[in-house]
């Protein structure tokens, strides 16, 4: 009987995975369609990829988005590391509950709410202090908030599992606390730092709603340009662009996951080997 339930859930698993992947695979297929009409197969062609290279608007937007994503993901990891360290290492401090709330709320808050409220802040700040100008700066700040929340949660769950006795051993041997954290704990949470950086990067690169609110009239990010094109219907150029993004991100994530898992396994083996050494 139990196998009956398992086979039902496995069928659902397969259907679910197909549901997640078939639309993307079809999109990739259509990006090689020579015909500009989506319902007609006009033969294999890479011409839409070629025309991407000549689309100034898309290229400019892509460069801006990459710049924003680089700055935001770096900021987000710093924010996330500090917040996670505070929450994991300090059991009690004023504002602990507030900090916990503020790294969890952005994960569920509808983007449209975050976007409009942050815009109103930026506008009021600009009125009062003459800063910030809407555009790159405001988009990066907004992205650091919501990517930082993801980073904090990821790093926190990793930091909790770190054996503190190693860091304490380093301190017994005369390391300063900062040095001990840097040399001992940081390498152990490196996979979480790397994956939260990567996640922040892709989240920032993809964000449409918050960026639309907080950016000024001059800055158009890649998702904003894609959205305005997609709103008009399916376009072959966007198919090609989407394929490039999906394949690039997918390859990066799989590669990073593989590398991190291997590094982790090696570290575990070294640790075990170290523990097996007779104490002396």
């Amino acid at each position: 009987m139990r196998s009956g339930r398992l086979s039902f859930s496995f069928t659902m698993l397969m259907i679910g995975i197909a549901f997640l992947y078939v639309p993307m695979l079809v999109l990739i297929g259509y990006s090689f369609n020579a015909s500009p009409l989506v319902s007609v197969w006009g033969g294999f062609s890479v011409k839409w990829y070629g025309s991407l290279l000549h689309n100034r608007q898309l290229l400019d937007a892509a460069l801006l988005s990459l710049e924003i994503a680089l700055l935001s993901s770096t900021g987000a990891v710093i924010l996330g590391l500090l917040a996670a360290t505070a929450l994991v290492r300090f059991r009690q401090f004023r504002g602990r509950l507030l900090l916990t709330g503020m790294i969890n709320a952005p994960l569920v808050m509808p983007e449209i709410i975050t976007g409009i409220t942050q815009l109103l802040l930026f506008v009021s700040m600009a009125q009062m202090f003459g800063w910030p100008h809407r555009g790159l700066t405001t988009i990066v700040i907004s992205h650091v908030v919501f990517c930082g929340a993801y980073a904090a949660v990821t790093i926190q769950s990793r930091l909790i599992t770190v054996d503190r006795s190693l860091e304490e051993a380093a301190r017994d041997l005369g390391s300063t606390p900062l040095r001990a954290f840097w040399d001992v704990t940081l390498p152990m949470i490196m996979p979480a730092l790397a994956s939260s950086w990567l996640l922040s990067f892709t989240l920032s690169l993809d964000d449409l709603v918050i960026s639309s609110f907080v950016s000024g009239p001059s800055a158009s990010t890649l998702p904003m340009v894609i959205y305005s094109k997609v709103k008009l219907g399916v376009t072959p150029e966007i198919n090609a662009l989407a394929t490039l993004i999906i394949v690039a991100v997918g390859a990066c994530v799989v590669f990073a996951g593989y590398t991190m898992r291997r590094a982790e396994r090696q570290r575990d083996q070294e640790m075990q080997a170290a523990y097996r050494q007779p104490a002396g």
Binding site: L198, T202, D206, I226, I245, I246, V249, G250, V254
Partner: peptide, 18 residues
């Protein structure tokens, strides 16, 4: 998890194609 990492906007667009 992989689809979550790739673009949300582009996935909605991909679903539209289906």
């Amino acid at each position: 998890i992989l689809p979550f990492w790739t673009s949300f906007l582009l996935r909605v667009y991909a679903l539209e194609g289906i």
